[in-house]
Simulated assay, not measured.
Amino acid sequence: MTREILAEAAVWVTRLHGPDRSRAMERECLAWQAQSTAHRLAFERCTDTWQEVGGLSRAQIQAAVEVRRRVAPLRGRAGRVAVGLAMLCLAAVSVVLLWPGHTYGTGVGEQRMIILADGSRMTLNTSTEARVRLTDSQRTVTVEHGEALFEVAKDAGRPFVVKLADAQVVATGTAFLVQSSPPSQAAEGFGVTLIEGQVIVQRSAGSAQGEPRAPVVMAPGERLRVALSPGAARQTASQMRVDRPKLDRLLAWQRGFAIFDETTLAEAVAEMNRYSTVSITLRDPQTFKELRIGGTFRTGDNEAFAQALARLFDLVVTPRDGGLELARK
Rank of each mutant, 00 (worst) to 15 (best):
T140G: 09
A148M: 08
E151H: 00
G119P: 09
Y104N: 00
L116R: 04
T106V: 11
Q111A: 12
H145T: 00
E151P: 04
L149C: 11
T128E: 03
L98Y: 06
R112M: 02
E129W: 04
P100L: 05
A130H: 06
R131S: 11
G107Y: 10
N125E: 05
A92Y: 06
L98F: 07
V96S: 10
T142Y: 08
L134R: 06
L124F: 06
T140A: 07
M113F: 04
E151L: 03
L97Q: 15
S94M: 12
M122P: 09
T126V: 11
T142K: 02
R121P: 10
L90H: 04
D136W: 14
I114F: 07
R133P: 13
T123A: 00
M113I: 13
S137L: 12
G107P: 12
T103V: 14
L98A: 14
R139F: 14
Y104I: 01
S94N: 13
V132Q: 02
A91N: 13
S127F: 14
T128Y: 06
V93S: 11
V93A: 14
S127L: 11
H145Q: 08
G119W: 03
T142H: 05
V108N: 00
P100Q: 05
E147F: 08
A117G: 08
V141Q: 00
D118V: 02
E110T: 03
T106Q: 06
